[in-house]
Nucleic acid binder design. Structure first.
Ligand SMILES: [Zn+2]
Ligand SMILES: [Zn+2]
Ligand SMILES: [Zn+2]
Ligand SMILES: [Zn+2]
Lengths: 137, 137
DNA sequence: ATCTTTTTCTCCAGCTACTATAGCTATTAT
DNA sequence: ATAATAGCTATAGTAGCTGGAGAAAAAGAT
């Protein structure tokens, strides 16, 4: 039996976040002590570690909810779980693909300013005029 | 004189977003028609285009507010504006640096599952066990 | 001048995934 | 018994919008 603080230290998930996950239905409502404090079993720690790892990899709460539901049916095919992972990979690749042109433009913008007054500032001129940009973004 | 809809079409910024920017103090409170509708001048369109471009490049509202305030003083040195752009470049690079390991892990996780049942699913096993990961993340 | 359609108005709620109070109670250590 | 630590609920705040309700204004057609 773990207190919420012990569970927090064991998983690296902050206490308010654990309560939030309970509210969101990712974690079952915990058993309570006589004084109404949450008490956890070891398997709760495993579940929370799973959630944390998935969150660290960027899965949304909703995706994690689906993954956890799938886990509850070991006999079923795993295609749905694989699909969720592939979708998440695409999401991450998409984010990178959107950030790279920004990086390029910002490199140019930050490197090219040799003006000394606001009037001549290449940064401000670039922001005012997308035509100076090399890429769409 | 532009209506809010015309300004929206001219800049690609949605109408509720324009009102939101006004509320946030990025856009000055617009003049009103007799019937209390917003009317804009051409320079409002320039300002909004600047805001949109900066937002597209990922600058926060707060950073944009600072950039706009700097623009109002053409005589001053532009070092502060340059610093804001460099900071934004670092923010973008940081985001990419955090996403790349996720992409790697997700590639592995999504590619390696050859199980057919949830019980053997490599995706779910990987999420349950960070030790299977190649990188920290 | 009237009718209809489109546009705009304000206010408010919701989105994601937490995080941070405030005010109170339970548990533990000495 | 007392003090220190830990936990409870409820609510509000974060960033940057986005959508809806219900009413009023403007524009176009007849
Ligand atoms: Zn400059
Ligand atoms: Zn641009
Ligand atoms: Zn699988
Ligand atoms: Zn991992």
């Amino acid at each position: 039996m773990l207190t919420i603080g012990e569970l927090s230290r064991a998983t690296g998930v902050k206490i308010p976040t654990i309560r939030y996950y309970e509210q969101m239905g990712l974690m079952a409502a915990a058993e309570r002590s006589g004084g109404n404090q949450r008490r956890y079993e070891p398997q709760d720690r495993d579940r929370l570690s799973f959630i944390k790892h998935a969150r660290d990899l960027g899965f949304t709460i909703e995706a994690i909810r689906e993954l956890l539901e799938l886990s509850a049916h070991p006999e079923r095919p795993c295609a749905d779980a694989d699909t969720i992972a592939i979708r998440q990979l695409q999401i991450v690749r998409n984010k990178i693909a959107k950030l790279r042109p920004l990086e390029k433009e910002l490199e140019r913008i930050a490197a090219c300013c040799h003006g000394d007054s606001i009037r001549d500032c290449y940064v401000l001129q670039s922001l005012a005029n997308h035509d100076m940009c090399v890429s769409e973004h």
